[in-house]
């Protein structure tokens, strides 16, 4: 960024969220790995940043294959924002391929992290079980409290790369975090209003453990935390048994996954499909989850509506 731009915009620091209008090349060059943190970055950076999101709306980051154009974007980036927790399996090789010198910020640093309940897996060597730790659950943003930590980390990253505009970023972050505080309360109240006995639902892949941890809604899922793994028939049969045992109230599809598996599960369990939850990606700009805040509100609305319809 050019210094003269900052001098003339000083007066707007306190009062404007978006900062001054800059030409594209004068903006802080930011790459966000996927759409949800892309929106968080946009909230903090406003017009001061030029943002490229690698995995766009409704995209599945778990299985994303980066393109040469992504490598070019990384090579030009001043800040690279990632989730971490092995969510972006493609990232290390993309960073290496790009030769980027940008700082790579892991936004989940400092967030409250939930471990995979299994904690890893065993394999057996010469009759002896050897434990290999599995990664932590990589979907912290489904707790709004964690999203606030992401925002804090984004502001720090932007300040480190563009100290002259730090006050802008901090002001934007503070305002947005206030909005998120209200959202957190809103989600909490909406889930609390669901009778406790009805707070078990089913989703295609278990991306909502943090939502469960933060708000008390239990999610059952036929597959693990990554969409790369496929559910076996035994997994599905076991899930349907568990649904019946726990009197699950609703079954949801996900915007990033093929819905046929959960449609099958819903059908076998005697439920209508309760709608689509936005798990690992936002909707397109014209969809109901174009921003993080809209995503959380849409998910809550979908959940509460489906559970209410079940009774």
């Amino acid at each position: 960024m050019k210094a003269f731009i900052h001098a003339v915009t000083f007066c707007s620091v306190i009062t404007l969220n978006t900062g001054p209008a800059l030409s594209q090349e004068d903006r802080l060059q930011v790459v966000a790995s996927f759409s949800i943190i892309g929106d968080l970055a946009a909230q903090v950076g406003g017009d001061l940043i030029d943002l490229k999101v690698l995995v766009g709306p409704n995209g599945d980051t778990h299985v994303y294959e980066p393109k040469p154009s992504d490598a070019r974007a990384l090579a030009q980036a001043e800040v690279v924002l990632t989730n971490g927790l092995q969510f972006e399996g493609f990232l290390d090789r993309l960073v290496e391929a790009s030769g980027t010198t940008a700082s790579v910020t892991v936004l989940s640093d400092g967030a409250r992290i939930v471990q995979d309940p299994a904690g890893g897996h065993y394999h057996f060597v010469d009759g002896e079980a050897i434990f290999h730790a599995e990664p932590n659950d990589p979907h912290p943003w489904h707790s709004v409290a964690n999203a606030k930590i992401y925002v804090e980390n984004i502001a720090k990253a932007f300040c480190a790369a563009d100290a002259d505009d730090c006050a802008h970023y901090q002001a934007n972050a503070t305002a947005y975090q206030n909005e998120l505080t209200a959202l957190d309360l809103e989600v909490s109240e909406a889930i609390s209003a669901i009778p406790e006995k009805d707070r078990v639902v089913v989703v295609a892949h278990n991306a909502f453990r943090y939502f469960e941890d933060a708000y008390g809604l239990r999610f059952l899922a036929p597959v693990g935390v990554s969409t790369e793994s496929e559910a076996s028939a035994a997994d599905v049969a076991g899930l349907i048994r568990e649904m019946r045992d726990q009197k699950a109230s609703a079954v949801f599809a996900e915007n990033i996954s093929d819905s046929r598996l959960v449609e099958q599960i819903a059908s076998e369990a005697g439920h209508p499909l309760g709608g689509v939850l936005y798990s690992d990606a936002l909707s397109g700009p014209d969809g109901p989850a174009a921003t993080y805040v809209e995503m959380m509100r849409t998910n809550v609305r979908t959940i509460t509506t489906a559970i209410a319809a079940h009774h």
Binding site: H121, Y122, H123, F124, V125, D126, G127
Partner: peptide
């Protein structure tokens, strides 16, 4: 490498 020992992998 577990040096040729008998493996049983789940993945």
């Amino acid at each position: 490498s577990h040096e040729g020992e008998d493996h049983d992998h789940e993945h």
